[in-house]
Design a protein around this nucleic acid. Structure first.
Length: 201
DNA sequence: GCGACGATTTCG
DNA sequence: GAAATCGTCGCT
């Protein structure tokens, strides 16, 4: 699978994020159709990006070739999945926030335990659980079949007019850029929560 | 080396 | 509204 537009310049990552809506991610017996994403740009361009202050051991994958997975650990509890975008040396990425399970529903139910089907892959950490992936996926290719996750084009095209945009969820910085994109009206899209500062101890 | 804090989820 | 819970990153 060749997806050259994934390597579009980092400045175009919002457009890349929109394009990824409707694509499917398959891993460990479950396939989900992406219904919600967020765009993150690179060094110096996006205060909310992990790569904003330059390369670090964690964010190194973001600076690599497009089409690879960037997984990170958050709050000592959860894993989230990004699709690396942009040209090599740039650090753009698209956070996969929600999806609809289209294959392997039984497996996804077993992994998520007793939630409604629409919630199986609702929210970035829940989506990762439904797909049964984890830290070992970091840095693997999503497009050449060499890794545990495979990205594939939409089974049915997404109507561009149905795509909606808004501020990214839970980010303290850049609250004003509408870099979250979702398929309008889709029940699997996660609820918007504004960033809440933690109480200092 | 130390400490504040996070692209979250879930419960009360 | 707040806790859980720990790796990462910047610097008191």
């Amino acid at each position: 699978m060749e997806l050259p537009w994934l390597s579009a310049p980092a400045a175009d990552v919002p457009a890349t994020a929109r394009t990824l809506l409707g694509y499917t991610l398959a891993a460990e017996g479950v396939r989900i159709r992406i219904t919600e994403v967020e765009a993150y740009a690179g060094t110096g361009e996006d205060p909310a990006s992990h790569a904003h202050r330059g390369p670090t051991p964690r964010s190194a994958v973001m600076f690599g070739p497009a089409g690879h997975a960037y997984t990170y650990f958050i709050f000592g509890v959860h894993w989230c999945l990004n699709i690396v975008c942009g040209r090599e040396g740039e650090a753009a990425a698209v956070l996969v926030r929600a999806g609809a399970v289209v294959e392997g529903v039984e497996l996804a139910r077993a992994r998520r335990g007793g939630v409604r089907d629409r919630d199986l892959a609702r929210g970035p950490a829940n989506l990762v659980v439904a797909l049964g992936i984890g830290p070992s996926a970091n840095g693997t290719s999503l497009i050449d079949g060499s890794g545990p996750i495979v990205l594939a084009p939409p089974p049915s095209p997404v109507d561009p007019a149905s795509i909606e945009a808004g501020p990214r969820v839970g980010v303290a910085a850049a609250h004003d850029v509408p870099w979250r994109f979702w398929i309008g009206g889709d029940p699997t899209v996660s609820a918007y929560r504004r960033h809440v500062p933690r109480r200092r101890t």
